[in-house]
Design a protein around this nucleic acid. Structure first.
Lengths: 246, 246
DNA sequence: ACCTGAACACCGTTCAAGT
DNA sequence: ACCTGAACACCGTTCAAGT
């Protein structure tokens, strides 16, 4: 159940959540996500694995804490420039931030934690979005969208192209091999893959990210201009109605 | 090393890769990704874990095979409608397809396999994109972007909101709790989070997906119209130059 | 050529017991 | 209040040995 406030004047615990998080981040950086075990985190603290369970319910909860810890030194959107530049810069920096921390996306992905560090970033981003003229609802949706985009993208980026053939092989070697593979496909069945073999494999991850980001920003910009112009078939936020898949 | 062609007239192997994949998919559906172990897959086939290693190098390779197996019955983009409708419909269906298979996104995410089933889908999607008038380079980038978007999104969607508080609690209860949490923040430090507490927590995943998808499609549409109008600061695909982070 | 037994080096988690 | 020893029920992978 893990106390939050050490109410009584208890002897200082020797271990704190903050120490678990710091140790967890060190293990993650050193050994990657596959090496991030409760036992190793405990060892990092000079303690036995069972001890961690006094401070944390289970490994999932530790991962939640690590998720917010990974955001600790992420920079919020800048203040100079128009909203496009602000959001572009923020997204690029956020991506670099995640890329710099080993396997960070694997920890963060699919984990919506709302820890203090994430809240700080959200607050700033929402500020820029509203300043830009987005409605409250659009600002909220855009905030989610941008976060999901960057996290999802880095997740792909931090994983080996195809785990089964990760043995050696540089970035460009893998791309060359993929291109050859596509070019060698039966042309009658896969005319487009054969024709675009080069285009599909040439772009760097930087290129792909930049492309996606500019498309997203263009899409958001369209919200500001056409406002109520042509009717995009966007589903109204159906009230209580249960969603189809549940 | 796992043979591909059973060259000699060897006695039929009893086990085949296809059987591994089918068994793996059954285990995944029944027990989720945390229950997907080599031992359980083996048991599903009435065999011992060590036997699998004759047919497959390791678990990673089996996951690669499962990734393509998950695409087996995914539907390609439809032919009716304009390109926007085609891509919208395809993305919506692809999302539903992944959502319908337990933990599929956790298997698929960060795994670019280029198996036969994925190739089939790519071929069709590239066809629609080129038909719509996108350049080869843009079609290739858009193809990657849409795939990454849907996969990344479903990954968030298939994970519990916050793993540490997954005990019971329905969709709407979690949303309510999050809203209350945001509303309760210190207003001077987090004015936007407090003001948008409702907007941030109200949208369903359907809403969020639709929003992101329409923004992406708008962004792609802009590529077709303005073509060379105003200069978006898109980095030229720098030739051999090493990327900053490596 | 294909499968198994047995082992190695790990896991997350629980819980009685210590201090 | 906090930490440990010891155990339980698992993992992925290897490899000599069987057929």
């Amino acid at each position: 159940m893990a106390r939050d406030s050490a109410a009584e004047g208890a002897a200082q615990p020797g271990l704190t959540r903050q120490m678990l998080v710091a140790a967890g981040l060190r293990v993650l950086e050193r050994e990657g996500i596959s090496g991030l075990s409760m036992r190793k985190v405990a060892a990092e603290l000079g303690v036995k694995a069972a001890s961690l369970y006094w401070h944390v319910r289970n490994k999932e909860q530790l991962l939640d804490l690590l998720t917010d810890g990974l955001m600790a030194d992420a920079e919020p959107p800048p203040r100079q420039g128009d909203w496009r530049e602000q959001l572009r810069e923020y997204s690029l920096r956020y991506r670099r931030h995640l890329l710099a921390k080993r396997d960070s996306a694997k920890v963060v992905a699919g984990r919506l934690t709302l820890g203090p560090n994430l809240l700080r970033l959200m607050e700033e981003q929402l500020d820029r979005l509203r300043e830009a003229g987005f409605s409250d609802a659009d600002a909220a949706l855009a905030n989610y969208l941008l976060g999901a985009f960057v996290q999802g993208f880095v997740l792909q980026e931090q994983s080996p192209i195809s785990a089964s053939e990760t043995e050696g092989a540089s970035r460009s070697e893998v791309a060359r091999a993929a291109a050859d593979r596509l070019r060698g496909l039966p042309e009658t069945a896969f005319p487009n893959l054969v024709a675009l073999a080069g285009d599909l494999t040439a772009p760097s991850m930087d290129d792909r990210f930049a492309f996606g980001l500019e498309r997203l920003l263009d899409g958001l910009a369209a919200l500001l201009t056409e406002n109520h112009a042509h009717p995009t078939p966007e589903p109204a936020p159906l009230e209580g109605k249960p969603s189809p898949h549940e």
